[in-house]
Design a protein around this nucleic acid. Sequence first.
RNA 1: UGGGGCGUGGCCAAGUGGUAAGGCACGGGAUUUUGGUUCCCGCAUGCGUAGGUUCGAACCCUACCGCCCCAGCCA
Length: 570
Amino acid sequence: MSGHKKTEEMTNFIYTMIKEDLERGALGDKCVHTRFPPEPNGYLHIGHARAILLNYKLAKAFDGKFNLRFDDTNPIKEEQAFVDSIMEDIRWLGADWGERLFFSSDYFDIKYQFAVRLVEAGLAYVCDLSQEEIRSYRGTLTEAGTESPYRNRSSEENLDLFERMRKGEFADGSRVLRAKIDMASGNLNMRDPVIYRILHASHHRTGDQWCIYPMYDFDHPFSDALEGITHSLCSIEYADHRPLYDWIVENAVNLFPEAVKYRSRQTEFARMNLTYTVMSKRKLRRLVEENHVDGWNDPRMPTIAGMRKRGYTPNSIADFQERSGVSRADSTAELALLEHCIREELETTAPRLMAVTDPIKVIITNWPEAQTEMVGMENIPGDEAAGSRQVPFSGEIYIERDDFMEEPPKKFFRLAPDGEVRLKGAYVIRCDEVFKDEQGNITKLHCTYDPQTRSGADTSGKKVKGVIHWVSVEHAVRITTNLYDNLFTIENPEEEKDVDFTLNINPDSLVVCKDVPAEPAVAEATPGSRFQFLRKGYFYYDPDASEDGKPFFNRIVKLKDTWAKVKKKG
RNA sequence: UGGGGCGUGGCCAAGUGGUAAGGCACGGGAUUUUGGUUCCCGCAUGCGUAGGUUCGAACCCUACCGCCCCAGCCA
């Protein structure tokens, strides 16, 4: 955890429920056991991070166990590559599954045996209806379904047919195994759900060993019960699958007692949206495929990989998860909360450095020619242990273009004609002359400095309100900065159903600044480290190599900017 | 008159019959060589609405309103 106190007890309803379970002795001699069950068919995003961390922290809080189990029951959609990236992301987040890595496909054999027992018990049957027929027999939301003509086949016939399904005698889609429950149930999930389908497809782990694969509703509760998961947490759209979950678990315990001893229970909690981004797999894929972003790990993406590359820390994501809470109500967290979490961490941990992302040159006309002076600056204000560094100052420097205004509004206390400003850690300068090109763009400023105003040794008595950052031209190292901003211009890009969400993409979500002058200390920075470029925001030294070999820094988040607010108000 | 779920300030979220925690955001002020940080202060006479029970209701009861999810051989 980060430096600030974070020892309060969890207060979410799931934590409370587990505590009560423990007090009641509802777990018997078992310890709390959770799991995260990703399907290896895509990349993890911030929403998954919440689920991962919730499951992991809950297990940890109660000194229990945490499994990582890949839900790989659909060979058509799943790949090893996703298994790898998912593990990398979870590991990075800090959720440690130890030796407890599992795959649903590990249990294909025993699951088949369980299915056979369901058939023997008259609780499952092979149905020859086509996919379309099954759909129409299912009924509608308001009308009961109709029983399949194959519903009352004998156990012997079902056993034979199921066995032959397994052997590969039938074509994909020609038959399925269904649980025999209740075609008149108000809950569609209970209307004789399909539990096995024929899929002549190669599986990323089991190869061609199987041509029938279990469905989620059959597979998941069984896997949970088999692993002894005590608390199976899932998102709220599975709430109406719970009766089926319980049905499977109950029958597993009764029909397969030698393998399944524990009655796992499912608890649902609401997913959470984030403002200024999208979270659905489909929309994220479109962003990538239509090249609105540069891949799944583009720093603007809400994917774990994207956030990692942006420079977010696992800690800040965990903090966000804790602060945003858990409930069953639909909710949308504000990006501002996430940003607060990373700023709070970096405020006390990120060394300060100076870089000028949009420079104009300043000539200090009364500076002794060719002279360089070293000025000291603290690395992290208020943290003496973080030390300080020497920064070269000279008669030619860069300052930020928007730190100068020819016609400053009231309360602008940066540099203006005939005005004064302090150069952070150095001297107070006055602007004497402004130079422009033919288009009227400012090209250069002539200023004079006041030798009496050296930082820490100011004898001038001047009180200058503004302090700006700078970089000595002669000593500057050149870097690239990627200035990231919100990917969308509106809070909820999914809101307007009839407008394509890509229309609200922020055209300025990435501004690349090349040849940005930065103070010499930047050259000693190590890839993968985080800094604050003074007054500009927190940046991450991207460890990936850039095209030109120059270091590049991703802006993780801007600093809060009260001035921007004041300006906006006019 | 299908089933399930949810409604507490701008966004989250505690609270589970005793008179509305906390965080973020927002507004104001102080400090500040980052318009950053930090520190003060403010921010629901109100808990979807309307009734009812009670000495007392966000919490209990009734009715209504609104929003979300479900008709994959996806998960």
